[in-house]
Design a protein around this nucleic acid. Structure first.
Length: 889
DNA sequence: GCAAGGTC
């Protein structure tokens, strides 16, 4: 009998590789798939077995509303609270579900190696669903491996005590997903619709709300408000100076500072009257500054922002690259674990008692410090320092304090600036310095305090003398600065040289730094180490805050107005506790103390009430918007004439760009990310609106006419392809700015429709090549569906479509008026019409240019393709297969 | 066009 097959699934490919390497001892066969699969023979529960180890890439599924709730105008957001939700594949193109189902075929055991956190537990059940295993099936068993790090020791330990996946924890994640989706989307749709329908200069595509992003913004605005409401106060401080051996020394006042000038003056007078300082006490204390604990993701992001000037998103990208290239290990959810730990697993380092590491700043007991140090020993930058550590003995790092079950970020390989590039090098350098810091001695110094009295007042000065630099020699920015004091003796009497009355003023705090924000988010449980950067990025992209010099976060008028609005309607909405509340509720589910659907119902009911109240009170928030923003009617410049009232509409250029008819109070969205202008005062034959020309950005961006009304409300049935549909969205959702330009319009007689401007079938897809009407003198056709471009005879005076069709291939006959200096026609004739496929002259003058790649099939490309019976994607642009996309007419 | 969470 063949040995049983065991399928093991990890959360990401790198962990699958580590697990397979460990269990197989490196003796495995790997093959490609949606994700790699590693196969080998071994023992499972005491019997021979055939193993297959593969992975997912994070969540397999994500939640969303069904299609009927996707139309913003047709759905009242309050209905979303009770709406059904559905799970769809998070990345349909990756076919992870199919992959798992195929790999599971014929397997009698499933071992779940997903990360040991709540999200991982949830992914376990996603995997179970894809594989077709059942949790309580005695014949095909499901096992959960619980590992605290991806080290050889922990992997083998987990293999030997497999448990069951925890349904409660998975359900808690389901609950969070549903709550976040419903609350976020309901508030976002409502406030977007409300405020964008009234104001023209909000400059944000969407006025989003979310239980993470909004409190994040709240922190920034809170600081802003502290600054603007700050009242400076004057204060005074007495500063006596003494001269010793020609050096002047300034003493600090025990009272620090006073806010009353008269009182300060009185003390100054007392001191001046006495004139003699007496040394009343001297103390020396041995103090130390501890070496840092291991580096975790959040701290790396903070340092990257505050010391290196990299935003969290950039820092994550740099770190990921360094990880992939094997220069550093990563912890948290960033990139997983280095294989380093697996392959250099040394039993002799593990004589510590076995222990679970729950802190992401703590190193696993099996961490190979010697190996890691050895890897850095030849580096010219800090090689000497490393040699010193290796010969004098490195120190055991501090145990960390942060939660999470991942080992710290450490260097893996030596590198120099040339290998990494400037930015990555700076980050890598920090990782190395930090790692070396964690295994260096603490910094030790002696702190001397000398106390004085004069005129009944007390003063002091402090001296610092470093005895052991320790880790500060590799992290010099943390060094304790030496401060020498002259020799004093108790009872010494010294004459003051002057008694300054320093006048100062209290100052407001600075804007919140990104690094402070990250700390606040971490402290309040807003986001995770992997998502913190996304939330910060979010509030920047939505134009709520701007990152200014020194990575300070300055809220915009929009950000401030939103938060002030929540504060006056329902402050809970922007407080960090809102996340805490959700978290605490789903914790009950995770612990099995409350039923999943009861909790979801309960939490949603509360948010629904908050939502209703918010909608009811929106006037209060609107009063703040009114004071800050301009009504649509006052915004923008007059552009196209409305076909209903025949008055000019206003073009609102701030995103989302749109037209607003003040008389009809209607908004017409436009295609986004391009320029728009009037199209010669031409009008749409259907509704009389003035046509516009939209030009997409870039030299190859197509330009096309559109009718503002038709674009938003396609006039014919069966227009299932629209312009501007998000390509990344699986459900083909419609959004602002999607619509029907003239090149998709099937109007039979309009000069600008697909019928009039279409020339022939696109060689790349099912679309139609249409004439770009304003492309002169670089005349071209573009596909109305994909990005295929065809260059027409260059420099022609005019190129236009005619109403005639080619008798051979049914393409539209085009008419070309060549420039008389460059005309290819005999006798200087300039006018020529024909089919671009069948007319030899025209055909020789066209080139296909598709995206960045440029190709031309030796002048006969179209025919060759047709005649050869080539069955590629779509139909060829050939005379044997010439059907146009308007064949339906 | 919308949330937050994985990871690529």
């Amino acid at each position: 009998m063949a040995p049983p097959k065991v399928l093991m699934v990890a959360e990401k490919p790198s962990i699958a590789l580590s697990i397979a390497s460990t269990i197989s001892g490196g003796q495995m066969h790997s093959r490609k798939g949606s994700t790699d699969v590693h196969e080998f023979e071994g023992m499972f529960i005491g019997l021979p077995a055939y193993f297959k180890v593969t992975s997912v890439t994070g969540h397999v599924f994500s939640v969303d509303f069904p299609a009927k709730y996707q139309d913003w105008s047709a759905t009242d957001p309050i209905d979303l609270f009770q709406a059904p939700i559905q799970k769809t594949e998070a990345n349909p193109k990756a076919h992870i579900c199919r992959h798992l189902s195929q790999e599971a075929h014929g397997c009698s055991h499933l071992v779940l190696w997903l990360d040991c956190d709540r999200e991982g537990e949830n992914i376990c059940f996603e995997v179970i669903q894809c594989t077709g295993f059942q949790v309580n099936d005695a014949k095909r068993k499901v096992h959960r491996a619980r590992f605290s790090s991806v080290t050889g020791k922990d992997i083998l330990k987990a293999m030997n005590c497999l448990v069951e996946p925890n349904k409660y924890e998975a359900l808690a994640v389901d609950a969070r997903q549903e709550i976040d989706l419903k609350v976020g989307v309901a508030f976002t749709r409502f406030q977007t619709g409300y405020f964008q329908g009234k104001y023209g200069d909000l400059d944000s595509r969407v006025i989003s709300y979310g239980p993470c992003q909004t409190p994040t913004l709240g922190f920034c605005v809170q600081r802003y408000l502290q600054i603007t409401t700050f009242k400076p106060e004057k204060f005074w401080a007495l500063r006596p100076h003494i001269m010793i051996d020609g050096y002047e020394l300034q003493l600090e006042w025990e009272r620090h500072r006073l806010f009353d000038l008269d009182v300060a003056l009185m003390f100054q007078k007392l001191v001046l009257q006495d004139r003699i300082l007496e040394v009343t006490d001297m103390s020396e204390k041995q103090e130390s500054k501890g070496r840092p604990p291991g580096l975790n993701t959040v701290n790396l992001l903070k340092i990257a922002s505050s010391a290196l000037g990299f935003g969290p998103q950039v820092a994550m990208q740099l770190a990921e690259r360094l990880y992939i290239q094997g220069f550093i290990s990563l912890n948290g959810n960033l990139g997983g674990y280095g294989h380093f730990h697996v392959f250099t697993f040394e039993p002799k380092l593990t004589n510590d008692s076995p222990r679970l590491y729950c802190e992401s700043t703590a190193y696993p007991s099996s961490f190979d410090f010697k190996g890691t140090l050895g890897a850095l020993a030849n580096n010219p930058m800090w090689g000497d320092y490393v040699q010193g550590l290796l010969s004098d003995g490195y120190h055991k790092p501090q145990s960390g304090t942060d939660a999470g079950d991942h080992p710290p970020i450490t260097p893996m390989r030596s590198a120099n600036e040339d290998m990494l590039g400037r930015d990555a090098w700076r980050l890598y350098q920090y990782v190395c310095q930090h790692f070396l810091g964690t295994v260096s001695p603490d910094c030790k110094y002696i702190r001397t305090k000398v106390e004085f009295s004069i005129g009944g007042e007390f003063f002091h000065c402090i001296g610092l003398h470093v005895t052991v630099k320790g880790f500060t020699s590799i992290m010099p920015w943390l060094a304790v600065s030496e401060k020498n004091l002259p020799q004093f003796a108790k009872g010494d009497k010294i004459e003051v040289s002057k008694v300054e009355l320093f006048e100062g003023q209290t100052a407001p705090p600075d804007y919140l730094s990104e690094s402070e924000l990250i700390s606040l988010m971490e402290k309040n449980g807003i986001g995770t180490d992997a998502s913190i950067s996304a939330h910060i990025n979010n509030i920047c992209e939505r134009n709520y805050v701007q990152v200014q010099a020194g990575r300070k976060l300055v809220p915009t008028a929009l950000g401030i107005t939103l938060i002030r609005g929540y504060q006056c309607i329902d402050p809970d909405l922007c407080l960090p506790d809102i996340r805490g509340f959700i978290e605490q509720q789903i914790n009950l589910v995770a612990k099995g103390e409350a039923d999943h659907s009861c909790v979801v119902q309960h939490v949603l009911e509360q948010f629904k009430q908050k939502y209703s109240y918010f909608v009811k009170q929106i006037d209060n928030m609107d009063a703040l918007f009114e004071a800050q923003f301009s009504p649509l009617a006052d915004s923008g410049r007059a552009l196209s004439k409305c076909g209903k009232c025949l008055r000019y509409m206003k073009y609102i250029s701030s995103q989302p760009s749109r037209l607003y008819c003040g008389t009809c109070e209607e908004v017409y969205y436009l295609p986004q990310k391009g320029t728009i202008k009037l199209y010669k005062e031409l009008t749409c034959p259907l509704d009389n609106f003035e046509l516009l020309i939209f030009a997409m950005a870039g030299p190859e961006g197509k330009s096309f006419p559109l009718c503002p009304f038709c674009y938003n409300s396609p006039p014919f049935e069966g227009i299932d392809t629209l312009f501007g549909v998000s390509k990344t969205s699986s459900s083909g959702k419609l959004g602002k700015g999607t619509g029907m330009p003239c090149f998709l319009c099937p109007h039979p007689t309009c000069r600008h429709s697909l019928i009039a401007q279409g020339v022939c079938a696109c060689p790349e897809c099912n679309g139609t090549l249409v004439l770009d009407p304003i492309s002169a003198p670089k005349w071209r056709l573009y596909c109305n569906m994909c990005n295929c471009l065809v260059l027409l005879p260059q420099g022609a005076h005019r190129i236009a479509t005619t109403r005639e069709r080619c008798p051979e291939c049914d393409s539209t006959i085009i008419e070309v008026d060549f420039n008389k200096n460059t005309t290819p026609l005999e006798d200087g004739a300039t006018l020529h019409s024909g089919c671009i496929l069948c007319d030899d002259l025209l055909h020789s003058l066209v080139e296909v240019k598709h995206g960045k790649s440029f190709f031309k099939r030796a002048g006969k490309w179209a025919r060759a393709r047709g005649r050869g019976g080539h069955r590629g994607r779509g139909r060829g642009l050939g005379k044997m297969d010439p059907k146009m996309s308007f064949r339906d007419f």
